[in-house]
Design a protein around this nucleic acid. Structure first.
Lengths: 376, 376
DNA sequence: TTGAAAGCGCTAACAT
DNA sequence: ATGTTAGCGCTTTCAA
């Protein structure tokens, strides 16, 4: 099958309603009606219009429709790539295959720095995509550099009827401007009335539950909370941890808590604890990523998990299922969160004068091996 | 911080250039210039305009700009979710957290049907996203049901300056129409002149190389090719397999080849082979997914891999790294393929009268355990 | 350096 | 059942 005109040359201007109308011998209104309100057009006329449209390869312009309508029919998601420090960086050079090129053979995956496991952001994004498709909306994915995120996100905002953002990816000024024009949903705990809609999970309840598991089922007493940046969600998780200790009548430690956001920090933390002979009975980590770092640092120093110390995470990312020992964690319903975002946006469009929405979804504790549980 | 007007009510119509111009006491042209060609506006005027724009929460309408400009500044990707048979299906009911709700505790991941490993399409999509962001394009992700894909893809096409599609996701008629209006890149081998641009990999070379590895390094002779739907890419891979056999002076088997696109088929295939005592020395599978199915079916029947039989795949998806034995495969540069798509689209925009592009990227053979290699 | 105004393609209100 | 037409918000000549 041969598409396009000869040699794939596309010189003619794209066909418009006017062209179709002329060829079909009708008015532009009838062309529009044929596609948008077909019942108002006589069948014969409809066929003639469709035939003309086919012949001219007519594709309606969403810009024109959006301008006329005041709505674009698309939502936006301002996302990011967790593994890319600088998305603006030049990507690695890629060659193309020439005749007689050797095919590289490598043993194992050593030094293969390509995409890792999907993390929180990826899984939520997929939920947003699926629900947009299901509800008939197009989805505009923006993201990348934090450098010019104001420009980038404002550009996205101008193209959509509603926007979803992850916390701390967009400057407050930009958010304020945008949220005044279209509904915005943020994927985080809801800071005291910021006028945005929020989708979040039961951060404190989940962390409390996993902590209680450590306390009640494994009889542990000396738990160390490992945190990171003080986000709203992190605060809630810490609160849940403390609540569990308090309820159990244990001493609730004061801040500061150590963090282990990367391998180096985790290594330092474990090394320090070991040096001071102060290893706790459990590392209660505020994210799976942190827990994975701690797990590796512990393995490096040959500290047995769960034999000598337990480790728990929070999120439920895929990597935690795969790693050995498998990570006990609190699973967020990431796909459902993404879907909820879209549902809220649609609701806000239907009732722009209503209150911002705030949806807190349930989590579940997933018991695997790193807490000391024996599966099956 | 409080965004939005009181109670988050958004009643006023969105501000336009006219509003900003009026408030700043300038013409609409000056407002436009302030943002698009700032150097042509006196600094003081610029500041005044920006101040007015801030005050009014002005966000330029991409629809209007797109209409005026004839370009939208966005690309489209028509994607799909590999694990979702019917994306139009109602998603599972999700509740919200109420006060006093119990937190569910589950042991292990039994019955957890959420998102699996990322596959080919996910990794290519991420490449497209990253390159779009890097080059300053917005990315519209469409996809989902194959039911109304003509409607869906045409809708996307109307919103973008260029479109990327995976093979067999869009009916030919739709592609023809669209490719007449905007550049289209397909992620597949290039069927004899379809007028589209293509990004592909060295399918035959890669399959030939992995087959030669089985022949030369492991001394195997009785190889079974396991295929699936007869796509362009599949045909090339089969050709590579046959070429390797031919070169080695081995008998090149005729079609038909068995397939194992799902677990059931793989189980049946292995069962049949076992019953006929006709197990080959190696299963050379045309995708990783198929190889993974075969691996599982073999494990079910306690056939040792690589002890009794070798298995190889094609793609390089994450799951193949994780599974035991780790899967020997041919890795496609998926992120680079996604990036190439965007690069081509930008090129075609710059030179609409040029030839469709055709970029064939190199693959590499990744030796892991399932072929019989011992790592490290 | 700034302003006036045309026009991008579409659709809905209104007219026929 | 179909046609006429205004106008959505923006940018870009062209003129001042």
């Amino acid at each position: 099958m041969q598409f396009g005109s000869a040699e794939g040359v596309r010189v003619a201007k794209a066909a418009t309603v006017y062209d179709v109308a002329q060829l079909a011998g009708v008015s532009t209104a009838t062309v529009s009606d044929t596609f948008r309100r077909p019942h108002r057009v006589k069948a014969a006329t409809r066929d003639a219009v469709k035939k003309a449209a086919d012949a001219l390869h007519y594709v309606p312009s969403a810009s024109a429709r959006g301008l006329r309508h005041g709505r674009t029919g698309a939502f936006g998601l301002f996302s990011y790539d967790y593994f890319r420090t600088d998305p603006a960086a030049e990507p690695p050079e890629t060659s193309v295959v020439g005749p007689g090129d050797e095919i590289r053979v490598v043993r194992g995956d050593k030094g293969f720095a390509d995409r890792q496991f999907p993390v929180y952001v990826d899984e939520v994004q997929r939920g947003v995509e699926l629900e947009c498709w299901r509800r008939g909306y197009a989805l505009l994915i923006g993201g990348g550099g934090h450098a010019n995120s104001t420009t980038a996100v404002t550009d996205i905002a101008g193209r959509v009827d509603g926007l979803a953002v992850f916390p701390y990816t967009v400057p407050d000024e930009a958010l304020e401007r945008i949220s005044n024009r279209i509904p915005v949903v943020m994927l985080s705990e809801r800071p005291h009335g910021d006028g945005l809609s929020h989708v979040t999970v039961d951060n404190s309840g989940g962390m409390r539950a996993v902590t209680e598991h450590l306390l009640a089922e494994h009889g542990l007493r000396d738990l160390l909370f490992v945190g990171g940046p003080t986000t709203f969600d992190a605060q809630q998780r810490l609160a849940g941890f403390r609540a569990a200790l308090r309820t159990a009548g244990l001493r609730v430690p004061r801040k500061p808590f150590p963090s282990a956001v990367d391998r180096a920090e985790a290594t330092a933390l474990v090394g320090d604890l070991l040096a001071r002979d102060a290893l706790p009975e459990a590392f209660v980590c505020y994210t799976d990523e942190t827990a994975l770092n701690v797990l590796e640092a512990l393995a490096d120093r040959s500290v047995a998990v769960p034999g000598r110390v337990a480790v728990t995470g929070f999120d439920g990312i895929l990597a935690g299922r795969i790693v050995r020992p498998a990570l006990t964690t609190v699973r967020q319903p990431m796909e459902a969160m993404g879907r909820a975002v879209v549902d809220i946006l649609i609701g806000r469009l239907a009732d722009p004068a209503g209150e911002p929405a705030w949806r807190r979804l349930p989590v579940e504790v997933v018991l695997r091996e790193s807490c000391g549980c024996r599966l099956r």
